[in-house]
Computed example of a mutant assay.
Amino acid sequence: MIKLAIIDDHPIVLAGLRHLLEDYAALSIVGTFSNSNQLLDFIAHQQVAVLLLDLQLPATDPVQFIKALKRARPSMRILVLTNMDQIFTARTMLAAGADGYVLKGIDKYTLIEAIESVSQGVQYIDACLRDDLRNTMLGTGDGLPLLTDREQRILEMIAKEMTTKQIAAEIHLSSKRVESLRSDLFQKLQVKNTAGLVRKGINLGLLPGL
């Protein structure tokens, strides 16, 4: 039996997740929480095998919260369940100590699979992020930011002044996903706008021939 806790500041989300998972025989939902202090108090005295964690909790730094959770209950596995689909964010949370990262659009059976995987000590990454995230976590070894093939292609199209809509059509992604990948590029290259992105790309040799 996997003892599961859930934290999300939206009551309707908590209720929905409980309803979704409570009939699954291998899970026992031991608590649902809407703020970080409630959860920290609970795990100080109660065993939890897996925590479903929303990243957007009020007045809570998710990186520091994950570290605090791991200090308080080292054996507890943390599965991030979020709407935030940026590769940079996922990588940051995994580096902080999260054991898995999935998006709220997944179906019930995929969520159960993710919970079971992390409970067994196996890292679980949402399928739509998996390849890009694996590539970015390999490291280049030369001090340069490592871009996935998709990010490199998007960078080159941005440098050619293609719009988000044009890029999305070219690489068969949604405009929302392209905007997310653009945000990842800004964070990786540590720039604030498109002009800075292109300039930094040229300076680092990521945009050869431009």
Results as ranks from 00 to 15, higher is better:
K67T: 11
Q190P: 07
I7N: 06
L189G: 07
S36H: 14
A44C: 11
H10C: 08
K176W: 11
I154D: 05
L20M: 15
L39R: 01
Q123L: 15
S174T: 14
G209D: 08
S175Q: 11
P208R: 10
F33A: 00
T163C: 12
R91D: 13
I78F: 06
L40E: 15
L207K: 03
T164Q: 13
P74I: 01
S28A: 13
F186E: 03
K176P: 08
I6D: 00
H172Q: 12
V13N: 10
P208L: 12
A90Y: 04
R150L: 11
A59V: 09
I66T: 00
Q86Y: 13
Q123T: 14
E22V: 05
T140Q: 11
G201L: 04
V50R: 00
I66Y: 07
L146F: 05
C128Q: 13
M1A: 07
D54P: 01
L14K: 08
F33W: 07
V118P: 00
E170P: 08
E22L: 02
S183T: 14
S36F: 12
D85S: 15
I43K: 09
Q47P: 04
M76G: 02
Q120G: 07
Y109K: 11
I125V: 09
L81F: 15
V48H: 00
Q120F: 08
L53P: 06
A49L: 02
K160Y: 06
D131A: 14
P58Q: 01
S175T: 15
V191I: 00
I154H: 02
G205E: 05
K188Q: 07
A26L: 10
P208W: 07
D85H: 15
T136S: 04
L173H: 12
G205R: 04
D142W: 11
A68K: 13
L111M: 01
V30M: 02
A68L: 11
K200W: 01
D131H: 15
K108P: 06
N135W: 13
A44Q: 15
L39D: 03
G121M: 02
R91M: 15
A114K: 07
L21T: 05
S34G: 11
E156W: 09
H10V: 09
K188L: 10
Y109E: 14
G209P: 04
G105W: 07
V191G: 04
L40S: 13
R77D: 09
N35A: 13
T110P: 08
L133K: 04
L69Q: 07
T163H: 10
A72K: 05
V122C: 12
